[in-house]
Write a protein that binds this DNA or RNA. Structure first.
Lengths: 196, 196
DNA sequence: CGAATGACAGATTTCAATATCTGTCATTCC
DNA sequence: GGAATGACAGATATTGAAATCTGTCATTCG
């Protein structure tokens, strides 16, 4: 019944790590804490993750991937035209980030710190997201809804132009009044630009 | 001849403050340091600025205003059409920020920290900048170059959508390869959107 | 035999004492 | 008399010794 009796897997370590991060924050969360939470020695944790940095990286990647997976469904939603899919996707990204930031601010702040120290993981995540966006823009180009010469470049521009609504450095402004109108204004402007 | 012989003015205190900030950084710069640099007692500094926070605010406002003033000239450049003026203005804003960040990274980092703790000053500065943008967008609406219903809202959207190229939180990416192409891609997309 | 342990060295963090700073104001100086 | 000073109380920052953590590895355990 105690977790001690179960087999120690990487996944269980990641779960415990997230819990420790939520409790202690990024600065004070230690590998020893994680081991304590699992009822094992810290040496056992090092069997699954070579360094503390690797553990932090893995748990952050896991967290970012949860968002990517949610959005992936919108890319292939054939029941909506590309323009609507683009709007849905951007709105879903904004909503996902805003909920993460609003529901558990401690954990969000924690991951924001982690994300800053993990350049590679973030670049990969952003490449993943702009890849999804590219597929939507390309679909719109094919149907004639959008008129762009380079869907990938356009997707990158759209992603960067909406940074205010998904980049953690703006998180504190996501609760301000009127932010939804601002979001709509930016997205409308971008969609008009894509239509050419 | 020594600065001690000159009259102690708010401006001289602000100059000394900027120098102290450049040398010591935002965390270690003290009012005593400023007074020492001027060869006066720290009590004299408090005659001109009620608190340390007020001094930091004044020096930051001065720094931000230097950028606003440079850009104001572009708003009224009658020899260029509104679309070109918009492109010029955004490029000038990006160039100004990028140079500030590149030429004196220490001081830029310092002011970035100050800006973060001074919500009011920044809001005012942003209102100033979006006000300038609004005048350009409104001019374009009058000539028919742009088709927007609310120039102020459109200006705000353009400002927010270009955040990646003027918000200090992205400063570290302004030296990356390809950032100029990214800037052009975003501005092109926005201009197309304004043309409707 | 492979998984887990815990003692260990060196690096990092904590904590409490010590020093410095902020902001005030009675006094000095010109 | 108005500007400047410097002593002062309370708040904040620095410092270095002690505690904790990271990462390794010889040993134990099942």
């Amino acid at each position: 019944m105690p977790p001690t009796s179960e087999i120690l897997t990487a996944e269980r370590i990641l779960e415990a790590t997230e819990e420790v991060l939520r409790r202690h924050g990024p600065a004070k969360a230690t590998v020893v804490d994680v081991a304590r939470a699992l009822g094992v020695s810290h040496g056992s944790v090092y069997r699954h993750f070579r360094t503390k940095a690797a553990l932090r990286e893995a748990v952050t990647k896991r967290w970012l991937d949860r968002t990517s997976e949610r959005l992936a469904g919108i890319v292939t939603a054939e029941d909506r035209d590309p323009e609507q899919r683009l709007r849905d996707w951007l709105a879903a990204l904004f909503a996902a980030k805003r909920h993460k930031a609003g529901d558990d601010p401690e954990l969000f702040a924690t991951y924001t710190v982690l994300v800053e120290e993990l350049g590679g993981v973030v670049r990969e995540h952003i490449a993943d997201l702009t890849g999804q966006l590219t597929r939507i823009v390309a679909a719109g180009t094919e149907t004639g809804a959008f008129r762009v010469t380079d869907p990938a470049a356009a997707a990158r521009a759209v992603f960067q132009a909406t940074g205010r609504f998904h980049d953690p450095c703006y998180a504190r402004e996501w609760t301000a009044a009127g932010v939804d109108e601002e979001f709509t204004a930016v997205v409308d402007l971008l969609v008009r630009g894509l239509r050419g």
